[in-house]
Amino acid sequence: MMMLVAGFNAAAASRPCSDHTTSTLRLPSTPKLMTKAGVGQPWECCDWVVRDPNFRPTRWQCNDVMAQCSADCRDCVELQGGVGYVCRDWVTSLWQPPVCTPRPWDCCDAAVCDRKLIPDCVCADVVEACPSNCQQCAAVESDDGGAQRYRCLDSFHGYPGPKCSEPWIGKKRN
């Protein structure tokens, strides 16, 4: 067995390069995460995204119900009752895909959601200032008597989105 592997490696190493090949090793660059639908991606954005916890690198599936699947969707499933279609394709990316419907917050560590299939969520984070897309911003008493803090009271129909702090670091994102 060892002789066979050594012979194969020697044959591959002694093979001359033709003019049509390149000796440059090409590594994958940062993926084009959700480019326009119709350009290789089955969906551009997603409100109901699912992450596969057992697959590395990270891959995502969108469970949004659409009137029809994009032309790039390879696994289009019609839902019962004719309510629409869902593209069951997986997209491999290091980053979570962007949402189609903007949330009232950019990120949330303490989301409170009901138990519906598509939940209604509120972010209970106490922040220095509410995001610009928050409609109902309420002042909250500070525990340490310091600067005024706020909480966005808006409800969002959908998943709460990414967390603000990284669980392995415990620091806020910039």
Rank of each mutant, 00 (worst) to 15 (best):
M1L: 13
M3F: 11
M3H: 13
L4D: 14
A6Y: 12
N9M: 15
A10I: 11
A11G: 04
A13G: 04
S14C: 10
S18C: 09
H20W: 14
H20L: 03
T21D: 11
S23Y: 04
S23Q: 14
S23T: 11
L25R: 04
L25G: 03
P28D: 09
S29N: 05
S29P: 02
P31T: 04
K36M: 08
A37G: 02
A37Y: 00
G38S: 13
V39S: 09
Q41N: 08
E44L: 02
C46N: 01
C46T: 00
C46G: 02
D47E: 04
V50C: 05
P53T: 02
N54P: 00
P57N: 08
R59V: 01
R59M: 07
W60M: 07
D64G: 01
V65P: 05
Q68P: 00
C69F: 11
A71C: 02
D72I: 11
C73D: 12
C73K: 06
D75H: 15
C76S: 12
V77Y: 08
E78M: 13
L79R: 15
G81C: 09
G81V: 13
G82I: 13
D89A: 07
W90R: 13
W90M: 08
V91A: 03
S93E: 07
S93L: 09
W95F: 11
Q96S: 08
P97I: 07
P98M: 07
P98T: 08
V99T: 12
C100G: 09
T101F: 02
P102G: 08
P102V: 11
P104R: 00
C108F: 06
A111K: 04
A111R: 01
D114N: 15
R115G: 06
K116W: 00
C121W: 03
V122W: 04
C123K: 06
A124P: 02
D125Q: 07
D125M: 06
V126Y: 03
V127F: 01
V127E: 10
P131K: 03
Q136S: 14
C137P: 09
V140A: 05
E141N: 12
E141Y: 07
S142N: 15
S142H: 14
D143M: 07
D143S: 12
G145F: 09
G146N: 10
R149P: 01
Y150I: 09
C152K: 02
D154F: 01
D154M: 03
S155M: 10
F156W: 08
Y159F: 14
P160L: 03
P160R: 00
G161V: 04
P162Q: 09
C164L: 10
S165L: 06
G170R: 13
K171C: 05
K172D: 13
K172N: 13
K172V: 06
R173V: 10
R173H: 06
N174G: 14
